[in-house]
Simulated scan of single mutants.
Amino acid sequence: MRKIEGRNPVLEAMNAGREIKKLIIQKGARGRSIQELIERADKLNIPVEMAAKSELDRIATSSNHQGVVAYADEFRYVHIDEILQFAEDKGESPLIVILDRIQDPHNLGSIIRTANAAGVHGVIIPKHRASGITPVVTKTSAGAVEYTKVARVTNIARAIDELKEAGLWIVGSGLEGDRSIYQADLKGPLGIVIGSEGEGMRRLVKEKCDFIVQIPMFGQIESLNASVAAGIMIYEAVRQRRFS
């Protein structure tokens, strides 16, 4: 079983239809969100236990459980084909985010939250040397993982080949890009590659990209946090696809 921590992430998991095995609430916790959780648990026949804060501190993975921890089924990763089919069912050109070894769960959670808000059809992450869907990722995403299709693959380069065969163009972000993100055409079927914190995209992944763009930098700092870069890339694609 996996743990879901925090009031909103647990509520979103319930709303999304995830099977919750048990809900633990801190003794003395109050507020509308706590009452809503208890009422939803009652309707869904989810057992509710009350526990001291020290007990929740002990079992929680994240540092801010907000007095709520739920035990649920393991997160279900999807296949790439499911992401592509999801886009087709919506009658939209696929927009997919590909993460090359994002290791910080806070960054992963933030990227998934942005991807969901922007209507991205799915996120692809690697199985090795990268964060998976953890309680911290779930909490940071504000529950967006419950609604976002995430594929976990053995080989990112091979996954990019699969996307190319499906007709997607692949764009990466890097200082070596030959054009600005604002000069690139991001309107069609697209995969956006975001490299790891500090190291960026691996050489083979970079070579798989059809083109690489730069995010303009006008200050003294030459790089952005991975989740910030992802947000800029995603929303420029959204702007071009929906507002131009």
Results as ranks from 00 to 15, higher is better:
I20P: 13
Q35T: 15
L37Q: 08
R7W: 01
Q26D: 08
I34R: 09
A16G: 12
K43Y: 04
M50Q: 15
I20R: 13
L44V: 03
E55C: 02
I25W: 00
G28L: 00
L44W: 05
S54K: 05
K21Q: 02
V10R: 01
I38N: 12
N45Q: 12
V10T: 01
L11Y: 03
M14F: 10
E55G: 03
A13W: 00
E36P: 13
A51M: 13
D42T: 03
G31D: 11
S33E: 10
G17R: 07
M14S: 08
N15F: 02
R30N: 10
K21A: 03
S54G: 11
D42N: 06
P9Y: 06
K22N: 07
V48M: 02
K53W: 09
E12W: 03
K53M: 11
G31M: 12
A29M: 09
P47S: 08
E19N: 14
K22H: 08
M50F: 15
D42P: 02
I38H: 11
M14P: 10
I38K: 15
A52D: 14
R18G: 14
I34V: 13
I34L: 10
K53F: 10
R32H: 14
R18H: 15
N15Y: 02
N15S: 07
M14E: 07
S33P: 09
P47R: 05
N15Q: 06
V10K: 00
N8W: 08
R7G: 02
N15E: 03
E12G: 06
Q26H: 09
R32L: 13
R32N: 14
N15K: 06
Q26E: 09
A29L: 11
A13R: 05
L44G: 04
N8E: 09
R7E: 02
P9N: 05
A52Q: 13
L44S: 04
E12S: 05
K43V: 05
K27N: 10
I25Y: 00
A51V: 13
Q26F: 05
E36A: 13
A51I: 09
G17P: 08
Q35V: 14
I24E: 04
A51W: 12
R32T: 13
M50T: 15
A16I: 11
R18I: 14
A13Q: 01
V10C: 01
K21L: 01
